[in-house]
Design a protein around this nucleic acid. Sequence first.
RNA 1: GGACAAUUAGCUCAGUUGGUUAGAGCGCGCCGUUCACAUCGGCGAGGUCACUGGUUCGAGUCCAGUAUUGUCCACCA
Length: 749
Amino acid sequence: MQELPKAYDHSQVEDKIYKMWLESGYFNPDKLPDSEKREPFTIIMPPPNVTGTLHIGHALFATIQDILTRYQRMQGKRALWLPGTDHAAIATQSKVEADLYKKERKTRFDFPREEFLKLVEAFAQSSHDTIVGQLKRLGASADWSREAYTLDAPRTLAVRTAFKRMYEDGIIYRGSRIVNWDPKLKTTVSDDEIQYVEQKDPFFTFKYGPFEIGTVRPETKFGDKYVVMHPNDQRYASYKHGQKIELEWINGPLTATVIKDEAADMEFGSGVMTITPAHSAIDFEIAQRHGLDIEQIIDDRGVLLPIAGEFAGQHIKKARAAIVEKLKNKGLLVKTDEHYVHNVATNSRGGGIIEPQIKEQWFIDVNREFTMRHSEIAGIQTGQRVTLKQLMRHVVSEGLVKIIPGHFEKIYFHWIDNLRDWCISRQIWYGHRIPVYYCKQGISNEGQQPDSSSSCSQQIVSTQDITQCPNCNGPVEQDSDTLDTWFSSGLWTFSTLGWPDENAKDLKMYHPTNVLETGYDILFFWVARMILMTTYHTGQIPFKTVYLHGLVRDKDRQKMSKSKGNVIDPLGVIDTYGTDALRFALIFSTAAGNDIPLAEDKIKGMKHFGNKLWNIARFIMTNVPASDYKFEAKTEADKAILEALAKTTDTVTKHLDNFMLHEAAQEIYQFVWHELADIYLEKSKEQFKDEALKINTEKILLHQLIWSLKLLHPFMPFVTEHIWQLLKANGLASTDLLMVAQWPTSTRR
RNA sequence: GGACAAUUAGCUCAGUUGGUUAGAGCGCGCCGUUCACAUCGGCGAGGUCACUGGUUCGAGUCCAGUAUUGUCCACCA
């Protein structure tokens, strides 16, 4: 036996071991020994955004998924962990735009669309390379031969096919609706992407005819010609619905109409409000209920339109003070509350304050009935009429898709019940362009609605690029909008497996997938949308289990952020303590769905554990000459440790089967350190002195080590594989790679 | 306003069908380095499991309420 170093040095081991795994080809489940006999097990990796580098949260998901994959592979499954990255439309584009502005003071409108996209693609590519490199350092046993990108050719075909089918079923429609408009990024964002930020603003009360109305936004009030009050409000009982009232307003006299609607809150202010339907979702709904006029006041850039009279052309931010001043001079300002705190909607994807606008957009109708083309979902028949909402609810309420931890199911149902149509079009450039073409035949003026008498058809949805109208050969123009990034992400479990080819080998073998592992923060964005898309398009569930992890926080439970300076860089940690230590620290004592406080001390402690294991192995290897496994329990200590190992094996297996990774980790940690090392190893030194026990004791030790390595491998793949290779070199281990060794089973079961 | 969680050792957290003396990591005190490991070993201190009531032979665990903290959803003009 060669001389082994006293301390385990991860930096000499990890790259070498990862390379060995790669060369084995076993990350690809089809190349595993006897792959044909194995039952498939699939995890599709949530694709990290190509917006830079990985943070500690990515290290967590990579660790959990790798543990599950390695465990199932050792259990004899045909284990596929399919990796990929996400183009993250808005996030990536706005990152590039921000850099561009910072460096060159330019915006995307200073470039032709194609040229700008090349800049974004170059950035995305370099981010991608960094991210894949980082995942490899984390030990990810993912099948890189199947790597996917949400914006590559196969995924583009899937997106366009999905769009076309939904369009033909009438589930995707185009309509004029009030949307969340971000004037800074000049795009719409979905309801879920909005983040409310508390802000203090002056709250003005104005005289509006016989009423008093309150607002923080006088600049939207030019067109307010409806005054709304609750039908039961006794203070205003003398005013009748539809009654006209002459009054003086910002730019002169105005005829206002009284509207009685229950949306008015009697408790708030005077109980009377005016509405601005074009720039407020609630007001828009009221206007629709009563068939009121809707007038745009503010344009896409946040500039006032001609309706504002003398203020037209001014930006709303600047105009506000002047408008208040004018109203004050006219004697219409009653009072100003300078300390009014309210929530302002902002675009969470790095954008600005949301200004609702009425826009022509594409939507997915979640309440429209359609016919299931094909269904393998229990309780849903092929040919049955259903809505997307019903499908999304069904698969979870029937337990076909199980969410861990369970209480998130309630949150999921609550979200579905309140779900409105999903706005899927975005006015940005980076992403999947909407596959709709408008026939321009017979249309003279750009931008005008096609005239049906001179144009063959209004719009064509195509899965391939086209330049001519298939009906009349006239010129076509593609819709300039792109799709919400979650549209393509929603197809992820099956677009990565060969869909829309319904006979694709991978799709048949690996779908539905087994586990989706992701953060609870994207339950709605992503998990729900995958369920929507998958049930609709494939008639299957996307996954059987959803395992939600928490957010990694610092030791004071603070969210990690660059501005707070409390960010733990995974690569720095790996350099100092090793991947195994980081992985073990991340899952040790962290239950599903709970946030994880991570302190450097914890990682350090786990490095010590890796070293402990190393020295246990060193002791055993230098004392064990033989390789056969026939031993018996001769002493009380022998009996105790064999029983403890069997119990540990059962418990670790049970916990892994139940996704209790932290419990499994604690169990194996406890056993290796405090039972094997502290007790039996010490006892063995005594037993070595007795010739009648010596050989038997050595064999028991080897058995203990081999099982411990196996139980620990999913958690700490590098050090365990490294020790395994040393055992193998000395004829003490049989399987080539620990990675594909068989998971132990105790005889107790 | 609505919903969902959490409250266990000095700190950060585990504790899945209710069952002996409630655990871990870090930290703390004392002792110990020829003999796998000082990235170590041995011994030890430290908890009325937020509070109140209920169910039970038995409750950290189940139920109801209270308090505090956190998260999510909705959003008031």
